[in-house]
């Protein structure tokens, strides 16, 4: 099971540059759908890759679905050689994406994100319009219903993302 607080605070305390996207972003905007992993777009500078390694190494990241015992090293060189990583961690599944379909790289995603306060820290979360665009661009069968829900949130003016509480 996910521990979103642990994952997000690990990234924040190492000052990783990232934006929350995917199903967790949908939840932030009010979606009632079940999602099982945390997806983030991360910045690809060597400094930020170092911060990612520092943040996640204590959570024992490993390639999700891969057989146990592979010589997988979660380090800067591994991150430099790849772009998207689907990982398991001791705090739950985590997807690291270098680019987001329909939007672009970290800088482009950052431009269409807003601050959201979660578990005592401020994080960047993709805005509702860009999230809809990215889900449409992904074009997977499971995304049709997700897009429908997000568009309803938008059409009904429900997506304030901050809740009724002060």
């Amino acid at each position: 099971m996910n521990n979103f607080e642990l994952l997000l605070n690990a990234l924040a305390s190492s000052r990783v540059s990232f934006v929350i996207i995917g199903g967790v972003a949908a939840t932030v905007h009010g979606s009632a759908r079940l999602t099982s992993d945390l997806d983030v777009v991360y910045e690809r500078s060597r400094e930020n890759l170092g911060r990612l390694v520092e943040a996640l190494t204590p959570l024992e990241p490993y390639l999700r679905g891969a057989p146990a015992g592979l010589p997988f090293q979660f380090d800067v060189e591994t991150l430099r050689r790849g772009l998207n990583f689907t990982l398991t961690t001791t705090a739950g599944p985590l997807d690291l994406l270098g680019e987001l379909s329909g939007v672009g790289d970290y800088r482009a995603v950052y431009e269409v994100s807003d601050d959201v306060s979660l578990f005592g820290a401020s994080h960047r979360c993709i805005n509702l319009d860009a999230l809809i665009i990215s889900k449409r661009a992904a074009g997977r069968a499971k995304d049709f219903e997700a897009v429908a829900e997000l568009e309803l949130i938008r059409e009904e003016g429900l997506g304030d993302s901050q809740g009724d509480k002060p």
Partner: peptide, 20 residues
């Protein structure tokens, strides 16, 4: 959706964890 939007974003994530 309306029920979820009455919660803060943090409460929405905690509810998601409970659902998981």
């Amino acid at each position: 959706i309306r029920e979820n939007l009455r919660r803060t974003p943090e409460e929405r994530l905690l509810a998601l964890q409970q659902l998981q």
